[in-house]
Write a protein that binds this DNA or RNA. Structure first.
Length: 427
RNA sequence: GUGCCCAUGGUGUAGCGGCAACACUAGAGUUUGUGGAACUCUCAUCACGGGUUCGAAUCCCGUUGGGCACCCCA
């Protein structure tokens, strides 16, 4: 930066609700990626990556036309050939699309996938809620039995435990299938039919649009009015009921503590039977850290063979927020050696030595711009380097480089040619 | 999309109509080649745009961004 020359330039900002992941928090994101890859391997989930852009219809059909996401939260725009393109607001519909398009159902069943990447929702930003946010997701196709549901919850638990997160709440529910849910809806509507006047304006809208949503309204009047309302778990058909019961009993045998929240409703239309949500007390209103459920009808609805499926997604920023709150240690790796040089010739020699060391897998850093030896040492100290090599005219002449151990201040000399055998570098 | 709150160096704050201050961080230096301490110096068109005023960081309007809650969700 040239001094005294401040140019008048427009002040750019990241778009609303979008943020940079800076070097200081990247190690935490990396920790999540690493842990997810590890766990995915244990459970035989393989990596899949879908485009960030999809045709708008995929989400309209998949998530549901009347959902908030589709109605008001999608980034949808025409491309140059006037196709309607959407920045993916979630990961399940794209993976289902890929599963069908690439005929992955011809591979041995079940097929299990995981992915990670940015999602986009045009919402009002808040702590823990962004317009571009990152998710790690998991989808498993081709197994209907509750064993898979329980296994997936267990997988999620193991992942969270890897990150030392134990104070999380597991909530589970079953929202039935296309056979039993309509009966429940009817029962719910008739329960509320006499009470509509007392419900909040939002719930009046829900009453006709999506009565299930009245159940998780936070308005106290609505909470009062729904006391004694019919529970979905009492209306499950025989198959859904035994699926749910078996699922719960497997969670018990796996020693996973959970609570049944029969008011938990998912905002995406594709869910059937098992749904679940993991919440944290460390976040504000946006406390859901991971959520998912079964979607046994979606593959068929998209034109594929009837294939039961289940999946979940983890909100990375929210998890990172918790890790930060817990002061989770993460280290920025320090160079093993800092090469301080005096003069142009030494500086060039320093680059050669650094490159030689790096090619042997040793992390090395250099002084730049002819900074004084003092300031180079100061920087070496701040970076946390273990050793400094000092190269000046004398050293170039004699072929012997000075080394200094920054931890115990010991010093010594070593020949330039023998530098990569310097034993301190391998401790 | 709705309601409320906020915006001063890189960070955290003070200033409340009259010379923009403090702490920390970062960079440079303290007589010529040795870090961590001390000291010195450097780093702000007070988020942006307009208005009121002799005079605005301060008062008013708008914009942008952030936060809390709702809606909804990961």
């Amino acid at each position: 930066m040239p001094e005294n020359q401040k140019e008048k330039s427009p002040s750019f900002q990241a778009p609303k609700g979008m943020h940079d992941i800076l070097p200081e928090s990247w190690p935490l994101f990396e920790k999540l990626y690493k842990a997810s890859k590890e766990i995915a391997d244990f459970y035989n989930f393989s990596r899949i990556e879908t485009p960030i852009l999809e045709n708008v219809d995929l989400f309209v059909r998949g998530i549901g036309e009347a959902t908030d996401i589709v109605e008001k939260e999608m980034y949808t725009f025409p491309d140059r050939a006037d196709r309607s393109i959407t920045l993916r607001p979630e990961g399940t519909a794209p993976v289902v699309r890929s599963y069908i398009e690439n005929h992955l159902y011809n591979l041995p069943s079940p097929q299990k996938f995981f992915y990670s990447g940015p999602m986009f929702r045009y919402e009002r930003p808040q702590k823990g809620r962004f317009r571009q946010f990152y998710q790690i997701g998991v989808e498993a196709f081709g197994a209907a039995e509750p064993k898979l549901d329980a296994e997936i919850i267990s997988m999620l638990k193991l992942f969270l435990e890897r990150l030392q997160l134990r104070e999380l709440k597991f909530e589970v529910n079953s929202i039935g299938c296309e056979k039993c849910r309509p009966d429940y809806k009817k029962a719910l509507v008739s329960f509320f039919s006499g009470k509509v006047a007392g419900l909040c304006p939002d719930c009046n809208r829900r009453y006709s649009n999506n009565p299930l949503r009245i159940l998780d309204c936070k308005n106290s009047a609505c909470a009062e009015l729904r006391k004694g309302s019919p529970k979905i778990t009492d209306y499950l058909c025989g198959e859904c009921k035994s699926h749910f019961e078996e699922f719960l009993s497997l969670l018990n045998s796996l020693n996973i503590s959970y609570i049944i929240n029969s008011d938990m409703v998912r905002g995406l239309d594709y869910y059937t039977r098992t749904t679940f949500e993991i919440t944290s007390g460390h976040l504000g209103a946006q406390k859901t850290v991971a959520a998912g459920g079964r979607y046994d009808r979606l593959v068929e609805e998209f034109g594929g063979p009837a294939t039961p499926a289940i999946g979940f997604a983890i909100g990375m920023e929210r998890l990172v927020e918790i890790l930060k709150a817990l002061n989770s240690d993460f280290c920025i790796s320090a160079p093993k050696v800092f090469i301080a040089t005096i003069g142009k010739d030494a500086s060039d020699q320093g680059l050669l030595i650094a490159e030689k060391l790096r090619s042997k897998g040793i992390q090395a850093e250099l002084g730049y711009d002819n900074a004084s030896l003092k300031s180079q040492l100061r920087r070496a100290d701040k970076l946390g380097a273990s050793y400094v090599f000092i190269i000046g005219d004398d050293e170039l002449k004699s072929g012997m480089i000075k080394w200094k151990n920054l931890k115990d201040s010991s010093q010594g000399e070593i020949g330039i040619a023998a530098i990569s055998e310097f034993e301190g570098l391998y401790r």
